[in-house]
Design a protein around this nucleic acid. Structure first.
Lengths: 234, 234
DNA sequence: CGTAGCCTTGAAGGTGATCAATGTTTGTGG
DNA sequence: CCACAAACATTGATCACCTTCAAGGCTACG
């Protein structure tokens, strides 16, 4: 593999919350035998059901975690951005399998690390485990949030997802969803059909709540989307 | 607090997967300053939003983890049975809050342990952390499963939940749901209305797929419920 | 230049929500 | 121990929301 790519990756990794308090030596240990893998749009990193003998730290781009339902449709479980860890949770099990498909959204890079390293160096590092639990906790929180929204109307679900994925951009209070997110992916995340998502979002585009830039979604008026969520109250 | 209750609890705990490989001394350390709390049906253990300064290990009975949605309705996140840990995931955060309400289902007992003990003794024990991640992993798997089922018809969702909660009973291939589960709780778990759940389950009772014993549900014919799930394939 | 992935719009139909009323069981205090 | 309230279970009628199906356009990329 490319050693210089790895060295570069170690520098990138230092920026992430996960490794904030780590020394350079510690980081090198934690990433032993790591390799940087570059993926193109839609390329598969881990396949659900495969033996999980390595895990990943997202360096750049984004990944979607999904499972295929009985009709062959995708159900998207989670979006991972830089700094997120992939597949770590299942590694302590004996002969673990990946529970989900992990697929790149746009060109992406990930640091792939063998399972042994996790068992030996990650699990034994309390500071790191605290951070890992933090990541898992926020992922769990998103699952819970979706569960709470399940009975809300479709518009509230879409609004909720966009606000969750959006981050601050520009001087105003506008938000921007930085993922290259398709309507289909939005639909698969909240468990509805593409058509329904399109109908809602076209409406919002028309009245100026949101705007479609080049492969990113601008939330022009977040307050209106929040309103959309609260309209579901009885 | 009652010391003899605690001593008894330490024996119970030894049976759980979580502490299988621990020595008696280790267990005592991990449960330092723990107190056994006895709760009645519907009694609240942790309240969502409260400061999380302790966590719990379920000893007997069962607990439901839920959040209240915008309409004041409950959304049930998870059912915890003996051996499960409660609220551990959020403890590493600075000034953590309980993310959910934790409420007893029927008379229940739980070992409540201070947060410090988790930070000091749990996080620093790799073997234990591996087990904890195992529990979290299975909880995450259930969330994912529900997500996959989201587009399936209501009957498939109910069938899926019952099969998930059921455990082997009797000599035949019958299953039994040991929780004192109400129709409303089933509805709140899968995000539908009570009435819909009742309509489905009455139907199943009539044709003999399931049976209502005293505060427990018998799955007489699991195969038929599995069939119910697969009918949703297109 | 053709195919694959994505976006869009319309019409029709069904599934599950809502609302309302009533029965049943459990628990509690007088 | 009875009366009353609260929680839980049930059934029916109506209707809205979202799905399904179908057809077509747009853009990117090999």
């Amino acid at each position: 593999m490319n050693t210089s790519a790895l060295t570069g990756a170690l520098h990138e990794i230092k920026q992430f919350q996960l490794f904030r308090e780590m020394t350079k030596d510690q980081i090198e240990l934690l990433c032993s035998d790591g390799t940087v893998k570059v993926l193109r749009h839609r390329e598969l990193l881990f396949k659900a059901g495969d033996e999980a003998n390595s895990f990943g730290v997202v360096l750049s781009g984004a990944f979607k975690l999904s499972r295929t339902d009985l009709n062959g449709e995708d159900a998207i479980i989670h979006f991972s951005s830089p700094g997120d860890i992939l597949a770590a949770l299942v590694l302590p099990q004996q002969s673990p399998k990946y529970p989900v498909n992990v697929r790149a959204m746009g060109p992406s890079r990930v640091l792939v690390i063998p399972r042994d390293v996790y068992l030996k160096f990650w699990l034994t590092n309390p500071t790191l485990m605290a951070s890992v639990q933090g990541l898992l906790s926020s992922r769990m929180a998103k699952h819970q949030h979706l569960r709470v929204m399940q009975r809300a109307p479709l518009s509230a679900k879409v609004a909720s997802l966009l606000l969750q994925l959006g981050s601050k951009a520009g001087g105003s209070n506008e938000l921007e969803v930085s993922l290259p997110l398709t309507r289909k992916e939005i639909a698969d995340s909240i468990g509805v059909t593409v058509e329904s998502v399109i109908r809602i979002m076209s409406e919002w585009s028309k009245v100026g709540y949101i705007k479609n830039s080049e492969n990113s979604i601008q939330i022009v008026d977040p307050a209106k989307l929040v309103e959309e969520i609260h309209q579901s109250e009885s």
